[in-house]
Lab assay of single mutants.
Amino acid sequence: QVALSRTQVCGILREELFQGDAFHQSDTHIFIIMGASGDLAKKKIYPTIWWLFRDGLLPENTFIVGYARSRLTVADIRKQSEPFFKATPEEKLKLEDFFARNSYVAGQYDDAASYQRLNSHMNALHLGSQANRLFYLALPPTVYEAVTKNIHESCMSQIGWNRIIVEKPFGRDLQSSDRLSNHISSLFREDQIYRIDHYLGKEMVQNLMVLRFANRIFGPIWNRDNIACVILTFKEPFGTEGRGGYFDEFGIIRDVMQNHLLQMLCLVAMEKPASTNSDDVRDEKVKVLKCISEVQANNVVLGQYVGNPDGEGEATKGYLDDPTVPRGSTTATFAAVVLYVENERWDGVPFILRCGKALNERKAEVRLQFHDVAGDIFHQQCKRNELVIRVQPNEAVYTKMMTKKPGMFFNPEESELDLTYGNRYKNVKLPDAYERLILDVFCGSQMHFVRSDELREAWRIFTPLLHQIELEKPKPIPYIYGSRGPTEADELMKRVGFQYEGTYKWVNPHKL
């Protein structure tokens, strides 16, 4: 086992960053958080920038500027975001240094004079007029057009580079997404736009490419001749908990499936790229999406959770019991969808996408189930092999396979070949997804960000279904809070070829 401390991990990262040409360590950078008073800024962006600063992973002359409508001070920003920093008493001095680099400007999102004030403020910072500028839009999409237009007109660096990070949702359907994309691309070049999907920053999602293309053993079996089906799962054990009003506007397909799960599907299904260059990788992902037809209604199961009468606390409440959810809402909190990649490698292999709230566990994984062994000599005792990439929690890679049961006879039983990170790298604290992705933006690497043509294809696949749901308002199937979801989803999976045995229990190697 390799035991690495946080300091050692960050030392390795620093070495990698400083050796590259793309990370300008000594240049002045300004990180501007648009929507600095909001939840995302408070819980994710400010803490992430602090962790990067604490670990010495930001360029040395980096300033952080918050911008929002609320009249706040840096002290206010500190008060609301610091509880999420997880700072230790030993880091007190470092924390003071961090907040000394912070400033805040209040202004409207659609007022040109406010942006001119913001620009004057940035120019007044040390070497601010020639600094590289990175704008993070932690804002609702309704203000994107006004904000990007004003940034472009008043706040661009004339000497350094300018980059803009856009948070999902990128529209509600193909038409609104196209409108937003066309607007942003009329102001910024594609190499300046970073559409963030934080799932692409997760260690195991990034590991998929290495697993596939750096190991000879997987190449020959990664196709329709050997793989019976692919299941991509995202499960949350909690409901909307008072935030249903926002969720109800989008629903589970827009929230998770059309982005996170579809991105994971691309990494499983794509061909080997010409290189690890950002556009070479994204070219292959677009090719996969172009091979997927629009979702067919007979390959869809929609569910909505109801309270568990035997549960406790939140578990007793259904989705419609959330006071922020519109009365009688038919918005799905669970969806199972089957897609097919219609190309030579994957023809006929079902890709089953499942996601839901208020389920029995927290889990995100990719599961490849292989065909049955031909010419069975073990009297149907063999179960199908599976390769599982567990994204969260407890990152893991393992192969479910058959071995001989101890004893006199040739009785096979299920076991696993474990390729888990935790076994080799004991207690290594890896940077989280937002840390990686923000560092990628500083480096100018777009590999783990969504390109406009990729986004367009993703919406093309799901828009007809979303429009049909909005028009017909089908009643989702009720499922109990804390269950596996509607049984109809299991029946759909069985119908397209997935075999669920229920006889195997994964042993978490992190707890051995």
Results as ranks from 00 to 15, higher is better:
Asp255Val: 04
Met408His: 09
Asn298Thr: 10
Ala358Cys: 07
Ser278Gly: 13
Thr403Trp: 13
Phe378Ala: 02
Phe442Cys: 03
Asp376His: 06
Gly485Met: 03
Thr503Lys: 13
Leu387Asn: 02
Arg436Thr: 15
Ala358Lys: 00
Ala335Val: 04
Glu294Gln: 11
Gln258Leu: 15
Tyr340Arg: 08
Lys494His: 10
Leu320Gly: 14
Met270Pro: 02
Ile477Gly: 05
Val256Thr: 15
Lys505Pro: 15
Leu417Thr: 13
Ala458Asp: 08
Lys317Cys: 10
Lys290Trp: 02
Ser415Asn: 15
Tyr504Asp: 14
Gly482Asn: 06
Glu416Ser: 08
Cys355Phe: 06
Asn427Met: 15
Phe351Met: 04
Leu262Arg: 01
Arg484Ile: 08
Gly407Ile: 09
Pro323Asp: 04
Ile469Gln: 09
Met264Ser: 09
Met264Asn: 05
Leu265Asn: 01
Val373Lys: 02
Thr324Asn: 13
Ala335Arg: 01
Gly444Tyr: 00
Gly328Tyr: 12
Val338Asn: 07
Leu262Ala: 09
Ile377Ser: 03
Leu439Met: 06
Arg327Lys: 05
Ile469Asn: 07
Val306Tyr: 07
Asp322Leu: 09
Val366Ser: 01
Met493Ser: 11
Glu386Asp: 06
Gly485Asn: 03
Ala336Lys: 03
Leu302Gln: 07
Arg456Gly: 09
Thr403Tyr: 15
Asp279Lys: 14
Ser483Pro: 01
Leu439Phe: 05
Asp440Ser: 07
Gln499Thr: 11
Gln392Trp: 09
Ser329Arg: 04
Leu466Arg: 01
Val341Leu: 07
Gly422Ile: 06
Asp376Met: 10
Pro406Phe: 15
Ala458Cys: 14
Val428Asn: 11
Gly356Ile: 01
Lys404Val: 15
Cys355Val: 06
Val388Tyr: 10
Cys355His: 04
Thr330Pro: 12
Ala336Tyr: 05
Asp283Gln: 06
Trp506Cys: 10
Asp322Arg: 05
Leu387Ala: 03
Pro431Tyr: 09
Pro406Glu: 15
Ala364Glu: 13
Met257Pro: 03
Arg456Asp: 06
Leu455Thr: 04
Pro486Tyr: 01
Ile352Lys: 00
Lys511Pro: 13
Lys285Pro: 02
Val450Phe: 14
Val306Ser: 12
Arg436Phe: 12
Leu465Val: 12
Glu491Ser: 08
His260Asn: 15
Val450Thr: 15
Lys317Trp: 09
Glu413His: 07
Pro431Leu: 14
Pro309Asn: 15
Val288Gly: 01
Glu470Asn: 10
Thr420Cys: 14
Gly356Asn: 00
Val441Gly: 04
Thr333Glu: 02
Gln468Ala: 14
Arg424Gln: 15
Leu455Ala: 04
Gln468Ile: 06
Leu387Ile: 07
Tyr479Val: 01
Glu435Trp: 05
Lys505Gly: 11
Leu262Trp: 04
Asp280Arg: 09
His260Leu: 15
Met401His: 11
Tyr479Gly: 02
Asp490Trp: 13
Gly303Cys: 03
Asp440Cys: 04
Tyr425Asn: 15
Glu361Cys: 15
Glu416Pro: 12
Ile389Lys: 01
Ala364Val: 06
Val397Asp: 05
Arg384Gln: 14
Gln296Leu: 13
Tyr421Gly: 04
Pro476Asn: 03
Val281Asn: 03
Cys266Ala: 15
Glu435Leu: 07
Arg390Glu: 14
Ser452Arg: 07
Arg424Asn: 15
Pro323Val: 11
Met401Lys: 03
Gly313Asp: 12
Phe498Ser: 14
Gly318Tyr: 00
Glu312Val: 07
Glu395Val: 10
Thr324Leu: 15
Asn385Cys: 08
Lys429Ala: 15
Val325Gly: 03
Asp490Thr: 13
Gln392Met: 13
Phe442Gln: 04
Glu501Asn: 11
Arg424Pro: 15
Ser275Asp: 02
Ala332Pro: 07
Val337Asn: 05
His510Val: 14
Glu414Cys: 14
Ser483Val: 04
Lys285Asn: 09
Pro309Ile: 10
Pro431Thr: 09
Trp459Pro: 01
Pro478Thr: 09
Leu267Pro: 08
Glu314Ala: 12
Leu471Tyr: 03
Leu320Arg: 09
Pro412Asp: 06
Lys287Ile: 04
Glu342Gln: 13
Leu368Val: 13
Ser445Ile: 08
Glu271Tyr: 02
Ala332Leu: 01
Gln263Asp: 10
His260Pro: 15
Arg451Gln: 03
Glu488Ser: 04
Lys426Phe: 15
Val441Thr: 08
Ser293Cys: 06
His371Pro: 00
Asn299Phe: 06
Lys317Ser: 13
Glu314Phe: 07
Tyr425Val: 13
Leu368Ile: 14
Tyr340Phe: 08
Phe442Ser: 00
Cys382Trp: 06
Tyr434Asp: 13
Lys383Phe: 15
Leu289Ser: 02
Leu471His: 10
Pro273Val: 00
Lys357Asp: 02
Glu414Trp: 15
Glu386Trp: 01
Val397Met: 15
Arg282Ser: 13
Leu353Gly: 01
Lys505Phe: 10
Glu488Gly: 05
Leu261Gln: 03
Gly422Pro: 15
Lys317Leu: 06
Glu457Gly: 02
Glu501Ser: 11
Met408Ser: 14
Val341Thr: 02
Ala332Thr: 05
Asn394His: 14
Ile480Ser: 09
Arg436Asp: 15
Gly348Gln: 05
Phe449Val: 08
Ala458Trp: 13
Ser329Leu: 01
His379Ile: 09
Glu312Met: 08
Gln369Asn: 05
Lys475Thr: 08
Ala336Thr: 10
Phe498Ile: 15
His260Gln: 15
Thr333Gly: 02
Val301Asn: 02
Val325Ser: 07
Tyr398Glu: 13
Asn277Trp: 10
Thr420Lys: 13
Ala335Pro: 01
Glu491Phe: 04
Lys285Thr: 09
Tyr319Met: 02
Lys363Val: 12
Phe449Arg: 01
Thr316Asp: 07
Asn411Ala: 07
Val450Cys: 15
Tyr504Ser: 15
Gly318Arg: 03
Val306Pro: 02
Glu365Cys: 06
Val325Thr: 10
Glu365Asn: 03
Val325Cys: 03
Lys405His: 10
Arg362Tyr: 11
Val288Met: 07
Ala433Glu: 15
Val337Ile: 09
Thr330Ser: 11
Lys290Glu: 08
Ile438Ala: 01
Gln296Pro: 08
Val450Tyr: 15
Tyr425Met: 13
Leu289Met: 03
Tyr425Ser: 14
Val306Trp: 04
Pro326Asn: 02
Val450Gly: 08
Ala269Cys: 11
Val301Thr: 04
Leu437Met: 15
Glu472Ala: 08
Ala335Met: 01
Pro509Val: 08
Leu419Glu: 04
Val295Phe: 04
Asp347Val: 06
Gln381Ser: 11
Ser329Cys: 02
Glu501His: 11
Val388Met: 14
Arg367His: 08
Asn508Cys: 13
Phe409Val: 14
Ala335His: 02
Thr276Lys: 09
Gln468Thr: 12
Ile292Glu: 01
Asp255Thr: 14
Lys494Tyr: 11
Glu414Arg: 09
Ile292Met: 10
Leu437Ala: 15
Tyr340Gln: 11
Gln380Glu: 13
Gln304Glu: 01
Asp432Asn: 13
Val306Asn: 09
Ser329Gln: 02
Ala336Leu: 08
Tyr481Thr: 09
Tyr421Thr: 15
Glu501Val: 09
Ala458Thr: 15
Asp372Lys: 09
His510Glu: 15
Lys357Cys: 08
Leu368Ser: 00
Pro476Asp: 02
Trp346Ile: 02
Arg345Ile: 10
Arg354Val: 15
Arg484Phe: 15
Leu359Ala: 04
Lys405Val: 15
